[in-house]
């Protein structure tokens, strides 16, 4: 099975081939496959043996979402069947997009549609966990669209403002 694993914004194509009970051949990005022994010790806790090295790591997948913990570091992301993922391409994340990386509430808008902004200028304040975060314009340009209003709750990754970069 070919999976597209995205962790912390980096996507890796992984081919998983079961060899035997608890043994897999894993090929990362089309590289030479390596053999991995894996045993789920308890729900979400795995013993992995990769090329003689044993490590106990956290890993749990559910409906396309996946979360891991390696050496204390927690990472969350997605795991998609490569064939299905091919249908899902496109989306936000353009050059002048201001988006939030955590769920929260819009406290204040610091710009208006049509306003000229310079790179680094704060354009919106979003609060999460009692902390106000100023999000800055990623580029200099003109504010073309404001997709939210003050007081609105926003999800992680939501597109808040689009700025058309000045040439």
């Amino acid at each position: 099975m070919e999976l597209l694993i995205t962790l912390e914004g980096t996507t890796t194509a992984v081919e998983v081939t079961p060899v035997d009970e608890g043994r897999y051949r894993i090929a990362l990005e089309g590289a030479e496959p390596i053999e991995v022994e894996a045993e789920e010790l308890s729900r979400g806790e795995w013993s992995l043996r990769v090329q003689q090295e044993r490590a106990v790591v956290g890993a749990l997948a559910s409906r396309g979402e996946v979360a891991v913990q390696v050496a204390g570091r927690g990472m969350a992301g997605t795991a998609l069947d490569a064939r299905r993922a091919a249908l899902r391409l496109g989306g936000a994340g353009g050059l002048g997009d201001v988006s939030t990386q955590m769920p929260g509430v819009v406290v204040r808008l610091l710009c208006t549609e049509g306003a000229e902004v310079v790179e680094g200028q704060p354009v919106i304040v979003v609060e999460a966990m009692k902390m106000e975060n100023e999000l800055k314009a990623p580029v200099s340009g003109v504010v073309r669209a404001i997709h939210v209003t003050s007081g609105q709750a926003v999800e992680s990754g939501a597109l808040l403002i689009h700025i058309e970069p000045s040439s």
Binding site: L3, I5, L7, T12, V14, V16, Y24, I26, L28, V36, A38, G44, W46, L48, V50, V57, G58, A59, L60, A61, V66, V68, V70, R73, M75, G77, A79
Partner: peptide, 8 residues
């Protein structure tokens, strides 16, 4: 981490 995610 990627291998663990893939196997899970």
């Amino acid at each position: 981490a990627t291998i663990a995610a893939a196997i899970a």
